Amino acid sequence: MASFDYFVVFAEMRTGSNFLEANINSFEGLSCLGEAFNPHFIGYPENEKIHGITQKQRDADPNLLIEKIKAADGLNGFRYFNNHDPRVLDICMSDRRCAKIILTRNPVESFVSWKIAAATGQWKLTNMNHAKTEQITFEPREFEAHLEALQSFQVKLLNTSQRLGQTAFYVAYEDLQDVDVMNGMAEYLGCYERIASLDKKLKKQNPMPMSQKVSSFSAMETSLARLDRFNLTRTPNFEPRRGPMIPTYIAAPKSALLYMPLKTGPDETICDWLGRLDDAGADDVLRDFSQGSIRKWMRTHPGHRSFTVLRHPLARARGLLSSYFANG
């Protein structure tokens, strides 16, 4: 584990950070120490110390705890939310030896989950028989303030990483149930152990539809309609959580090249070129991929490259109009 000295999980309340921490801790040599820089406690509620450092010592000098975390056996880290000690953010973001994991979730879902947890007092659930729930009232101004703070923090992480030439491992809430993603995260951290299954002790709270969680659901829909729905996931998550246009992808018969067409692109020309590249024809290119077959193709073509062809805007517009009128 020589790539990093320690790691930080950037997250927020109700994004699945407890579940992520539990799975990090299932890897030998990795240890996540909770919310080490929460202003109200150190690591976990009622915790007194982390590696011998008290909350009072930590507050006086956060570097004391960071150095202890770095010096501990294995690779250690902690969870950091946007309301934690801001001095720690500056220390971690400027340190190339600090691995960054960034966990995101749809802001509406995390906000509603947070309101329910605050109303019921239940922040973790290990036994579904003890589950508590309560309908909440959606307050538009409160949500907008929450969203502004969340996005500001996430964009700061992104821009700081860009300016310093660093990269982070991004995980969405939806990825947490994928054991392959967890194993990939471990590899990013320099741990080459692999787990076969996820830690299932923590249960998902409030799995019912959003309409059953919010008493003012129609008012919430009206309020959210004023906001840019695509920007709601700019936290940042890079792509909408919808399936890419995988069935349109085209691969060379043998070479490790994958073409991702855009509408009105020169598909016939590209197919002919891909075929001739492998001494074949346009009819021999590989098409009709699915999620499963595209992953299999990528595994069997190490070092593969994907590309697209973007035409001049006027040519593309002309092609789109021709296609529109041709289809009536």
Rank of each mutant, 00 (worst) to 15 (best):
N63W: 10
H84P: 03
K115H: 04
D85R: 04
C92M: 09
N82H: 14
V112C: 11
A119C: 07
A71C: 12
A119K: 12
I91V: 12
A71R: 15
F81R: 13
K100R: 12
E109T: 02
K100P: 09
K70G: 03
E67D: 14
T54Q: 00
Q122P: 13
S113N: 07
D90Y: 03
L103N: 11
A119E: 13
A72M: 05
V112P: 10
G74R: 02
Q57C: 06
V88D: 05
S113R: 04
L65N: 08
L75W: 07
V88M: 04
Q57P: 09
A71F: 06
I102Y: 13
F81Q: 14
C98D: 00
I53D: 09
N106Q: 09
A60M: 10
D85A: 02
K68N: 11
I101H: 02
E109G: 08
F78P: 09
I53Y: 08
H84N: 15
A60P: 01
S113F: 02
P107C: 07
R97D: 12
A72G: 11
I101E: 04
Q122C: 10
R97E: 05
R97Y: 02
W114R: 15
R97Q: 13
C98W: 00
P107G: 03
L103Q: 11
S113K: 04
F111H: 14
S94T: 10
F81D: 07
K100M: 14
G77T: 09
G74N: 01
Q57N: 09
A60C: 10
V88F: 05
I66M: 15
T120E: 14
I53C: 12
K68T: 07
L65G: 05
I102M: 09
I69N: 00
M93F: 06
P86H: 01
K70M: 00
A72H: 11
R87T: 05
F78R: 03
G74Q: 02
D61S: 10
C92Q: 04
S113Q: 08
W114T: 07
R96D: 14
I53R: 01
Q55I: 14
A71Q: 15
N106S: 06
D59Q: 14
I69K: 05
L75N: 03
D59V: 06
Q57S: 11
D73R: 12
R105G: 10
Q55L: 13
R96G: 15
L65T: 09
L65Y: 00
T104L: 02
I102C: 08
L64Y: 02
W114C: 14
Q55C: 07
F111L: 11
A119P: 08
R105M: 10
Q122M: 13
S110V: 04
Q122N: 12
I91T: 12
S110E: 09
K115G: 00
D61Q: 04
K100A: 11
H84G: 06
V88R: 03
F78L: 05
